[in-house]
Write a protein that binds this DNA or RNA. Structure first.
Lengths: 338, 338
DNA sequence: ACGGCCATTGACATCGTTGTCGGCTCGGCT
DNA sequence: AGCCGAGCCGACAACGATGTCAATGGCCGT
């Protein structure tokens, strides 16, 4: 199968290759009948512009890069899917790249990548979206960046985020409204912006309700299951467990459920548990987790839009998008025991 | 930051661009001192060949495509990570593509993609690795394909697989050795090759042990949690539950655990449960699941190797790779109640 | 009728690399 | 001394698109 090139189309349509190029790119200054004639030939031949030729001759590569700390995490999967879907809707492709924080040479590896392919733009996810050196590198290469949920210097790049602080406060209020007073909090890792936001939202709501946050009710995890187990163990393996636990993500909340079960503490009768993220896990737990749905798909799609729009001149769009969260009420919350 | 091109390097090293090209591609017929001189300049300038120019002038695009039915599944994540890691080790990049079975135009979408970018090769995962039309399309475009765990026509393309049948048989034997006789099996969806293999392995082992498989002990799921719930419900909501359940994947096995718990059936005392895949979930369950570890990372890496090696002439390698599984014994299996 | 402007179109250079092929050099052989 | 082949290297075309710029032709105003 010989590939059909712009020349073939031009010849068959009886126009110059430049005109075909114009038609393919939807540029103005092409007479309607000519445009139609070219389109017809394109239909017939199935011609599609070659990405490499495009990338070489223009700046536009039609390639969006998504950079992850851990591309195999469920979170990364969600983001990828959103980005992928939007990319294909807009005729682009998605390149997945990993930035390994433990590899000493991540900078040179990334540098190589950026030299090899001139990306339309890059999507940076937590926690790497908060590495200043990394952003410097993209800047140096002139690659536009959109960060997702960064913690630092929000003015530095366009970004897409969810109001984690407000979501966390709202979730805390939900517990308070159910009568809970002794609420424990399991923090996430400080490297993630969302982690701090969620902690602050919790404090906001507690303070607003006139409740104090006891030190021994606040534990630090790292968003992973094991850390949730450890935190839950210290919380529940005492004579006086809290009446509710707000974990900074579903994985740790799930761990709390498991530990509660092991200790014979029934949820939600004697303990309420809530999480964050609305991962698949939240629905697989028993009881199912009340949690904050993070619209990762939409977040990623918005990030792609931001990049592609910025690449096209007419933009001047907003550089900061906030996507709404929703609180998903399931069975893991009950009224406080009296 | 102006990009440094092959010309710059050539000029600085006092050689022709062709020689630089030779050095970069490790070709023969370059004197050692010249090679060294060029390499030094490359070091100094940080020169990296432009991917688009390469892809345009040669056939080699340095781009590997990974095609998924659902790129956001945990399985897809594993595969991606393996492929990604190996790709970067070998100086390639990974393009993620989704083939949406529900979209009527998946063929034309895919066709467009293949016309736009000339991939080094494509990795096809279950279940799309078994769509003959899809493979036809790749063939028509001359794009090499490696399939992962296909069910059909194994001779048609190179492939990487795990011996699911043997793994399943071994797992069944493990249950039999623990004294279980009344073993239930939850099937996966017939569209997945692994699903049938696992079922056949189960039958092999049962037959070898002289045990019969009762119809009402065999249920069909679709690898998803909900289907596992339904299957477990019909299995356990009777006066005479089986003494062990072999689910075709961890997600469904996890569902069995949940249903057992709801019914007050303790695992592993009164019921043994095993799964397949060794997903993160298997370790988060309580009790933790005994399961078959699928080396997805290695499988994907092997697939990438197969593609890249095939692209380089000197190959003639094997076209069928089998990666070893391992059975991971955890707490969800106990001796059969007497 | 003429000049000017704008919409339309095409010829050609260009992007950064690899493929082809021919030329040069050097050593060994006759 | 002359010839030959192998090893080394460079000039130039090619890959398939876009960018630049000039040419064409129609329409308008005067």
């Amino acid at each position: 199968m010989t590939r059909v090139t712009i020349k073939d189309v031009a010849a068959r349509a009886g126009v110059s290759i430049k005109t075909v190029s114009r038609v393919m790119n939807g540029e103005a200054h092409v007479r309607a009948d000519v445009r139609e004639r070219v389109m017809k030939v394109v239909e017939e031949t199935g011609y599609r512009p070659n990405m490499f030729a495009r990338g070489l001759s223009s700046a536009r590569s039609f390639l969006v890069g998504a950079f992850f700390d851990d591309p195999a995490s469920p979170y990364a999967s969600d983001i990828q899917r959103g980005a992928l879907t939007r990319c294909r809707e807009r005729g682009h492709h998605l390149l997945i790249e990993e930035v390994d924080r433990d590899a000493g040479d991540w900078k040179s590896t990334l540098d190589t990548t950026l030299r090899q392919v001139r990306l339309v733009g890059a999507i940076l996810t937590p926690p790497i979206c908060d590495w200043p050196e990394l952003i410097d590198l993209f800047d140096a290469h002139g690659v536009p960046v959109v960060r997702i949920a960064p913690a630092l210097v929000p003015e530095r790049t366009p970004l897409v985020r969810v109001d984690d602080r407000r979501a966390s406060a709202e979730m805390t209020q939900l517990l308070i409204a159910a009568g809970h007073r002794d609420i424990a909090f399991i923090k996430g890792p400080p490297a993630h912006g969302s982690s701090n936001e969620r902690w602050r939202g919790f404090c906001d709501a507690m303070q607003a309700a006139g409740l104090t946050v006891a030190d021994h009710r606040v534990l630090e995890g790292d968003y992973r299951y094991r850390s949730g187990l450890a935190a839950a163990e210290t919380l529940l393996d005492t004579g006086t467990p809290p009446s509710a636990v707000l974990a900074s993500n579903d994985e740790m909340a799930f761990a709390v459920l498991v530990v509660a079960m092991r200790h014979g503490i029934t949820v939600p009768d004697r303990l309420s548990v809530v999480g964050f993220d609305d991962m698949a896990l939240a629905r697989m737990a028993w009881p199912q987790l009340t949690t904050v749905h993070q619209p990762n798909f939409e977040v990623a799609a918005a990030a792609v839009d931001l990049l592609i729009d910025a690449a096209e001149p007419q933009d001047a769009a907003h550089h900061r998008i906030e996507v709404p969260y929703t609180i998903v009420k399931r069975a893991s919350v009950g009224p406080a025991a009296v």
